[in-house]
């Protein structure tokens, strides 16, 4: 249809649409306000932030007892250097708490709107489906980042307050100055955050399949758990490198004298592949499905 026709025809006075990036930004702001303002999500973030507080407190109370120095990796270093509380807390949250929170946020993304019935009203506004899915994906990724930061930032604050921040002793026993230590811990936080993007994509895909948000959330968490289980079976070592969770703990690479960027890169590449596959599936499903909710 030519422009003149639009102006002369029955559609004279057509509303003018803002440029796509402007419209996208406005919707994204609204979505972020919705996701980050929602009480349930804030409770999740607060719960995550509580983890380093609890760990820090326990270590502080028991530091002079016989139990001091026991426990999983990185825990023993915390009393000596508060920076390690960030690493220890992420190490403890990564297997289950973080996937759970991310499963909830990403599984809810589309299915939540569908179950509330608000999806049909967004689509007739109209919000183009691809734009809506992208906004939902970015909001879910933002929540994942917020979740990791909630652990990391409180870990840093509590660790520094309880145990102080010293030069960082690496896995090999050599020591790097505080400044470099902080950069290395920041690298760990970034790697953990990026490691969760594949799971966000999986959750988003499940979210487009159902009108029952709890179903999508549970399925997402199940994927993470099953991936961990499969990763523990040596008989399946052939598929281990491609598993969603296989490279999650490679963040320890940042604590080696020479960071092997090949290891870091392959971990991130696997996540990128999961994002590409499940992002495409989510897009294919969401842009063609009938909205019946």
């Amino acid at each position: 249809m030519s422009r003149a026709e639009v102006l002369d025809g029955p559609g004279a006075g057509l509303p003018v649409a803002a440029p796509a990036p402007v419209a996208f930004a406005r919707l994204l702001r609204s979505e972020l306000r919705l996701v980050l303002g929602r009480r349930r999500n804030l409770v999740l973030l607060a719960g995550l932030a509580l983890v380093p507080v609890v760990i820090g407190t326990v270590l502080l109370v028991t530091r002079d007892s016989a139990l001091s120095g026991q426990g999983p990796a990185f825990l023993a270093q915390v009393t000596g250097n508060g920076l390690f509380l960030v690493v220890a807390a992420l190490f403890l949250c990564l297997p289950f708490l973080l996937p759970l929170c991310i499963g909830i946020a990403s599984g809810d993304a589309v299915a939540g709107e569908a179950s509330a019935g608000t999806l049909r009203y967004l689509l007739v506004v109209p919000v183009p489906r691809t734009r809506l899915l992208l906004v939902k994906a970015l909001a879910a990724l933002t929540f994942a980042a917020a979740a990791v930061l909630a652990v990391a930032v409180t870990g840093l604050l509590v660790g520094a307050a309880f145990f102080g921040v010293q030069d960082v002793v690496l896995l090999s026993g050599s020591t790097v100055p505080v400044g470099e230590g902080v950069v290395r811990v920041a690298g760990i936080v970034a790697y953990v955050g990026l490691s969760l993007t594949g799971l966000v994509a999986v959750g988003l895909f499940f979210s487009t399949l159902t009108e029952v948000p709890v179903g999508a959330m549970a399925a997402t968490v199940v994927v993470a758990v099953v991936s961990t289980v499969l990763d523990s079976l040596p008989q399946l070592s052939a598929i281990h490198p491609g598993l969603l969770t296989h490279h999650w703990f490679d963040f320890a690479e940042f604590l080696r004298v020479q960071v092997d960027w090949g290891v870091v890169g392959s971990g991130l590449a696997v996540q990128a592949a999961w994002v590409a596959v499940f992002g495409s599936l989510a897009w294919a499903r969401f842009t063609t499905a009938d909205v019946t909710s």
Binding site: G11, L14, P15, A17, L34, A116, G117, T118, R120, Y121, V124, V125, P126
Partner: peptide, 15 residues
């Protein structure tokens, strides 16, 4: 659709 207002199968909003 910007020129169309719609109420479809009952109202639905964020509670």
């Amino acid at each position: 659709l910007p020129r169309v207002g719609a109420l479809v199968e009952g109202p639905a909003f964020h509670p």
